[in-house]
Design a protein around this nucleic acid. Sequence first.
DNA 1: CTGTTAGCGCCTTCAC
DNA 2: GTGAAGGCGCTAACAG
Lengths: 329, 329
Amino acid sequence: MAQIKDVAKQAGVSVASVSRVLTGQAKVSETTTQRVLAAVKALDYRPDLAARRLRSRRTDTIGLIVSDIRNPFFTEVSRAIEDVAYQQQWRVILCNADENPDKEAVYLDLMRDENVSGVILSPTLSRLAGFRPADYPFPVVLIDRCDRDTAADAVVLDNLDSAYRLTVHLIENGYQRIGCLYGAVSATGRQRQEGYAAAMNGHGLVPQAVAVSATVDHARTTAGNLLRQEPRPQALLASSGLILLGVTEALRTARLRFPEDIALAGFDDLPWTRLVEPGITVIAQPTDDLGRAAIDLLRQRILQPEQAVRRVVLRGELEVRGSSLKMMV
Amino acid sequence: MAQIKDVAKQAGVSVASVSRVLTGQAKVSETTTQRVLAAVKALDYRPDLAARRLRSRRTDTIGLIVSDIRNPFFTEVSRAIEDVAYQQQWRVILCNADENPDKEAVYLDLMRDENVSGVILSPTLSRLAGFRPADYPFPVVLIDRCDRDTAADAVVLDNLDSAYRLTVHLIENGYQRIGCLYGAVSATGRQRQEGYAAAMNGHGLVPQAVAVSATVDHARTTAGNLLRQEPRPQALLASSGLILLGVTEALRTARLRFPEDIALAGFDDLPWTRLVEPGITVIAQPTDDLGRAAIDLLRQRILQPEQAVRRVVLRGELEVRGSSLKMMV
DNA sequence: CTGTTAGCGCCTTCAC
DNA sequence: GTGAAGGCGCTAACAG
């Protein structure tokens, strides 16, 4: 394995010049640059990253801690983030906290050990409470989850507004007894529930929201119970793709058709939502934009640690499908 | 930030002893161990990984290069791999090649730069051709994709057998004109097509297989064309979850019901396959086992670089659902 | 079992 | 714009 001194010898320059050319940190003459690059090529030299990181105290690595990698929403976001990160020569260490605060803590510790340049995090509820970037030895950008008063860079959906619009859409189509299943483990689920409740109250309707644990299984059983109530809800709203999946399964089990027997709407524009006849009305999240915005915030925070905290709020798009068709009277 | 010499001073021992306690590489007396651990705790000392890696020439990091992270199959496998890897104190660098050989090459280069302990790779077709582990400066374990004669550690499904069994299942239920859409970009798709063709030929039927590019969009249009043929196929078989999704969408568009108008079967037991009435018959892949087996092979290969090449073949499980019910006559 | 010491390969001052 | 030299923080070899 060639080393920097081999390159220097081959190019007839000092190791310092080789280093300068390769890091681009200082001015080097055109001729030395060319000779160094030629030598690098000839020897197939690759800088030793461990040595470089030890000496420079920089890793150009970011941590990405998602709450649940099996949630397609996070898969999409991860993909976008990694794409952009690698393009700008950053490494990504991906960790899956599985909605488990302990795992989350372990991974954040690990990020410190790795001396990452920054972290993109979708926090668990407990961590978000009183979250302060200053508590971490690296810049942090939150994604997907963020409280109104969280003083940290963040990229989130307009959760409350989106849920409000989705609920109003159901109301305008004639539904009144609208139930809501929301993920209680995340700030996001709670905000969507708020939006739902605001819309219901604003229209003189009584909100009936049930908290679930954001797993398909739990959503399914909870929805099953809800469906056995009298009178049965005329419509159901699910605060995430995973919950929507559970609810849809429960409707199948109960042999209820939508929208005839019960209307349905939810979050996350997953492929299967247009597959299930007659299609499910959802709020589509701009996952690509979300990922790109997160990287962008992080990059700027790294460059200017003292700049003002920023929040990017992305608008969810209402995708109307058959599951929320105007109610028959 | 405390350093190892601070710990040594605090504990009243040498830096070597601290190092030995922390790495567990050599015998240390109980008393020194305790004093070191106490000092570590008191100072909240964390070893500098860059320094450790430079000195020890080990990174305890593995690379995971998947061909398409949006494919839920790979998401599941990744999750399993990361879970086990972090448990045994390995870092994981996840890369998404997007079925693009160029990206794949870049990432493999990156793995070399990172000096990873090993790589788990689901190779593109072109890389798999003539693949030799010796061409790489690190141990490699292949997942999901592997040719009959590939001389490398690998964990794969019994693709040919699974497809064979799935096809026979359709035949036994009375279907004869069975079409197959398979992913041509991967060895896996081709093997499944082989299994399908073997079953068809073995029963005196004419295989009709169409290659697609393993994207939902392409599968949808191709399936659409297939459905307009005369006579229309009595059943369709899709070689992956993504293709199955496209085919199912095409059936919806064509207003064809299954199994009445056409039967359907495919690979990957994704949540939505039981949601779409009356459920879709699939081969379920044991993604967790696959991930665990891959880590296991890699660990053993790292420990014993010269051991014989091993291949783990996992059996796919046939999940019979309504989409392949016995054909009406 | 423990301490001393010499690097791991590179970047970065400091002189020129 | 360039070169010489000194560490970055740690582990591993060697001696005791």
